[in-house]
Amino acid sequence: MFDWFISLNSVTIDFDTSHQFFPRIIMTLLLVLGSLILLANIRPVWRAIRSGRYQFFVRNADFFRLLVTLVLIPVYFWSMDAIGEVLPNMGLGFLLASIPFVFLMSMLYCHERTRRNITIITANAVIAPTVVWGVLYHLFLVSMP
C-alpha cells in the first residue's frame, strides 16, 4: 500500500517526447476550464446574442475606416518586404513603403481635410519616415528591410 503511494509520486519523462509534456497539461487545463465557462455561460450568452444585446462590433462602427485599416497595414508590411528584396540592405524597403503608408493612414483618419491639415499630413509623411530612417538606420545601424 505504502509502495503504491510511493510509485504515484515517481515520474519519468522521456526526453524524446518531453516537448509534449507541458503543452498537454496546459491544454487539459484549458479544456476543463473552457468547458466550465461554456456550461456556465452558454445560455445567457446565447440569449444575449439572439436578443441583440451582444454585438461583435461597437455601436455605429465605422466599417470603412476599420476595413481599410485592416487592409492597409498588411499591404504596408508586404510592400516593405518586397521593396527591400529589390533594393537590399539599405533600409529602403522601410523608407519607400512608410512614406505612402503614413500619408494614406493619416488621410484615412483625418476628419477635416482642410488645406492646412493636408499640408501637415504630407509634410509628416515625408519627414517622419526619413528622420527615422536617417537616425536609426544610418546612425544606429538598426536593421531595416
Binding site: 508590411f77 483618419y109 476628419h111 499630413i121
Partner: peptide, 15 residues
C-alpha cells in the same frame, strides 16, 4: 491629433 499619431505609432512598432 490621432491622424498624425497613429500612423507614426504603427511605423515605429514596425521598426
Amino acid at each position: 491629433p490621432k491622424f498624425i499619431l497613429y500612423p507614426i505609432i504603427v511605423m515605429m512598432c514596425t521598426v
